[in-house]
């Protein structure tokens, strides 16, 4: 469905000089500052997959998504989405993809939500009968009925995000890009968004690319993740394999009598009772627990390793 090969995006800006004559020099010289946001990224995503596209701030996630949607033109490399090159065939590509940017609403700010949804229906040439059906389905799945008539600028963030999801899926695109769809949402709203994504994927076999900083999103939805940092792919594969391959050791956390908390790494193969006995012999223990490695720990470790 999506094929990306050696994708690279270099941003080029005129070099800004400092000093009293700085602006003039900026204007007159042809020096540029270059920043490589995406650096030789390759992956393939099949129809019906939900893939988590993860990376720290500034890793190149949004830039990749913007190239996949045709907003940005790649500096080099190849992209094919459903057989099309997005930047060259932007309008046809737009019909095949739904996009939600958590940081930026696509809805008409001053108009009631229903007006935005109608306009989206118009823009994507959805016939009236199909639009009515789609709208009904979206209202049921996302519980939009209560605020359909409310101007978008008066919606809460959670309501607005549900409105954005409806707008992105109204025309049944086979592909859905979600760029931080749960950013800033409360627990209930996050849950609603996740359920909607899972349901959309299950019913319509929609291919989903999800970028997020909330690993709970990933654990709830994705079987596969692509990890990037500094524009390069660090890992591409199943979540389970990732945890097994990179799992940091389990930890024994003990709370001592004088309110101090100490953490001990449990070396692979070492019997736990033996470790506990040893710690207990040296310190007075009030409470203890064993921490299993989680995805967050794994990912933090991968980023830390790539820094070196």
């Amino acid at each position: 469905m999506i094929r990306v090969e050696s994708l690279t995006k270099v941003f080029r800006r005129p070099h800004t000089f400092s000093g009293p004559l700085g602006p003039l020099r900026t204007l007159l010289t042809r020096r540029y500052d270059e920043r490589t946001a995406v650096d030789g990224v390759s992956f393939e995503i099949s129809a019906g997959e939900i893939v988590g596209y993860l990376g720290p701030n500034g890793a190149g996630k949004s830039t990749t998504v913007k190239m996949l949607t045709g907003i940005l033109t790649p500096t080099s490399g190849l992209i094919e989405v459903d057989g099309r090159v997005p930047w060259r065939d932007r309008e046809a590509n737009a019909r095949a993809v739904g996009v939600v940017f958590g940081q930026r609403s696509q809805l008409w700010w001053d108009l009631p939500l229903i007006d935005s949804l109608r306009l989206v229906g118009d823009l994507y040439d959805v016939p009236a009968a199909r639009f009515a059906g789609s709208l009904r389905r979206m209202c049921d799945l996302l519980g939009l009925d209560d605020f359909l008539q409310t101007p978008v600028r008066q919606l809460s963030l959670g309501q607005r995000m549900r409105g954005d999801l409806a707008a992105a899926m109204l025309y049944d695109p086979p592909i859905l890009y979600l760029d931080e769809p749960t950013v800033g949402l409360d627990v209930m709203a996050k849950q609603a968004v996740r359920e909607f994504i899972a349901e959309t994927n299950r019913l319509g076999r929609t291919t989903v690319v999800l970028t997020t900083h909330d690993l709970a999103d990933v654990e709830a939805l994705c079987e596969r993740i692509i990890l990037i940092d500094k524009g390069r792919v660090l890992y591409d594969g199943g979540i389970d394999d990732l945890v097994t391959a990179y799992a940091p050791p389990r930890r024994l956390v003990v709370e001592l009598a004088d309110d101090e908390t100490r953490t001990f790494e449990i070396a692979a193969g070492r019997p736990i009772p033996e470790l506990i006995a040893q710690v207990a012999a040296e310190h007075p223990i009030r409470d203890l627990s064993i921490r299993e490695p989680d995805l967050e720990g794994v990912i933090t470790r991968i980023y830390a390793e790539s820094e070196r």
């Binding site: 949607t69 045709g70 046809a92 737009a94 930026r104 696509q106 823009l123 994507y124």
Partner: peptide
């Protein structure tokens, strides 16, 4: 402001 993003996402000139 990057508002042109919205425009470029839609299937219209």
């Amino acid at each position: 402001e990057g508002e042109l993003d919205r425009v470029l996402l839609r299937p219209l000139n």
